[in-house]
Computed example of a mutant assay.
Amino acid sequence: MDVMYWLVIVIMFIIGFIGLVYPIIPSVLFILGGILLYGVFYSFETFNWRFWAIQILLVLLLFCADYVANLAGVKKFGGSRAGIWGSTIGILVGPFVIPFLGIIIGPFIGAVIAEMVVHKKNPVVAAKIGLGSVFGFVGSVVTKSIIQLFMVIYFLFTVL
């Protein structure tokens, strides 16, 4: 039964990492879900207050990293709140409209359309802002990967 329990926990972690490139999947919830399943399958006694405090801080850091990376990417290239919102919508919709490439093309198109419609920016400037949103998204994925990896390693260090 141990093998089955660990298989389920590992699958939860894997889905969590898939969620980094498919933002519709709440990646942090799957990472936390794997940790909670360990507690259900085995015991919560292993997890002291320090463990939960660190994990909660890492979850908060994940949310901040996501927001800050997108904001920085769009703002650095001259974008506005509309560009940030357009990029965010593009990240969520893109993978469904254009499988695989939509995760990169979606935020770009979303930011470009938002800047052109809301702020009447010319296509060249809007495309530059769209490129910033892609850089922000990629930076976000890298940062969140590191944080989630740390969450899983800290979990494994605690239980093994």
Rank of each mutant, 00 (worst) to 15 (best):
F77R: 10
K75L: 11
F41H: 00
V59D: 12
S87H: 04
N48S: 11
F155Y: 10
C64W: 15
V134P: 00
F63V: 13
G16N: 01
Q148R: 08
V124W: 09
V3R: 09
A82S: 13
I103E: 01
N122F: 11
Y22H: 09
I147P: 03
C64P: 00
I35W: 03
I113A: 12
G83D: 02
Y38Q: 03
F96M: 13
F100E: 10
L160Y: 12
G132K: 02
P99F: 08
G130N: 04
V21F: 15
P95E: 05
I113N: 03
I24G: 05
I129V: 14
I98N: 05
L7V: 14
C64K: 11
L37N: 05
K76Y: 15
I84C: 02
F100M: 15
V21S: 13
N70A: 15
G130H: 01
H119S: 10
I129M: 08
V124D: 14
G79R: 01
I25S: 04
M151H: 06
I89H: 03
T46I: 14
L71R: 09
G83P: 02
Q148E: 13
I11K: 02
V59Q: 11
L32T: 08
V142P: 04
I109M: 06
G19E: 01
L131A: 15
A69T: 07
V112N: 06
I105G: 06
N70G: 15
F44M: 12
G39I: 00
L131R: 12
V21E: 07
S27A: 11
T46G: 12
I11L: 14
V10Q: 07
Y22W: 14
M1G: 14
P23L: 06
F96D: 08
I129P: 01
I91H: 06
I24L: 11
V142C: 12
F150M: 12
F63S: 13
Y67W: 14
G106P: 03
G86A: 04
F135C: 14
E115G: 10
K75T: 13
L32G: 06
F157G: 11
S140R: 04
P107D: 03
G132A: 10
P23R: 06
S133Y: 01
L58A: 13
L32F: 15
N122D: 15
L57F: 14
Y5P: 01
V21K: 06
Y154L: 07
G102M: 10
L37W: 09
S145L: 12
G110K: 00
G78P: 07
F150L: 14
P107F: 07
L62N: 15
W6N: 04
P26S: 07
D66K: 12
F96C: 07
A69G: 03
V134Q: 02
I129C: 08
G90A: 06
K128E: 06
G19R: 00
V93D: 00
G16C: 11
I104K: 06
I56W: 11
S87Y: 04
S80T: 13
A82W: 00
A65S: 15
G39T: 04
